[in-house]
């Protein structure tokens, strides 16, 4: 095993990206899941399809469109450059945006099914008893849906750790900024540094295994609670 400082840097960067992305996905995903569950609007099916799309969409499609949107010739890209002085491409923020889109369905879908499992009568009863929105969320929705929400959180994190195509198209492989572990692995293979490549691959393998194992345990607990 060979763990150079560059490897640690890329692994830590991957964790940072996955953590920031996951926090954002909880903040965006929970209200979005609730809205998708409860809205009866006609356009909702299209929105739901759009949210689910990244499951099947080639990452290069996301990478390509983002690269176009981020370009300073584009109004969005120009606005960002005007605001911050640099482009979104090749920046950590740019990768976070890409990752949030890329992992969105992996948060929203488990959130949706978790929230669906809460009996509406329970919410109704709480509301009649005078509980406010916040109390209902913290004391009723969250405790009941916690395993499903946990699944969404772990899946979002794991899926972001596994990101490659979007970052390859958008990142520019800057050490410590956009050169995540999967890109570092790709570079080490091209340099024929198989020892380094093995180290990164093993780290990613163990992390991914542990995360999926955690989800399986969560699911099993939930099933036991139901039966």
């Amino acid at each position: 095993m060979a763990f150079s400082p560059e490897i640690w840097q890329s692994v830590l960067l991957t964790f940072r990206l996955a953590t920031v992305t996951t926090i954002l996905l909880v903040l965006i995903g929970l209200p979005l899941a609730h809205w998708l569950n409860t809205s009866r609007g006609r356009g909702i099916i299209f929105l739901e399809t759009l949210v689910t799309l990244p499951i099947v969409l080639p990452p290069t499609v996301i990478g390509f469109y983002l690269l176009i949107f981020f370009a300073p010739q584009n109004p969005l890209g120009a606005a960002w450059v005007g605001l911050t002085g640099h482009t979104l491409a090749f920046s950590f923020t740019g990768l976070v945006i890409g990752s949030v889109i890329y992992s969105l369905p992996f948060a929203v879908q488990p959130f949706q099914s978790a929230l669906k499992a809460i009996p509406p009568t329970l919410i109704e009863a709480a509301r009649i008893s005078g509980a406010n929105w916040g109390q209902i969320f913290w004391h009723i929705s969250l405790p009941i849906a916690r395993r499903g929400i946990g699944t969404g959180i772990i899946l979002s994190f794991a899926h972001t750790v596994g990101e490659f195509g979007v970052v390859l198209m958008l990142g520019g492989a800057i050490p410590g900024v956009t050169k995540v572990a999967s890109i570092q692995l790709y570079d080490e293979v091209q340099k024929l540094n198989y020892a380094q490549a093995h180290s990164i691959a093993l780290v990613l393998l163990v992390i991914s295994f542990a995360l999926i194992l955690a989800i399986s345990l969560l699911q099993r607990h939930r099933d036991e609670e139901i039966h």
Partner: peptide, 8 residues
């Protein structure tokens, strides 16, 4: 391509 799109 990075330069052509203006991202660099």
């Amino acid at each position: 391509q990075f330069i052509e799109t203006g991202n660099a």
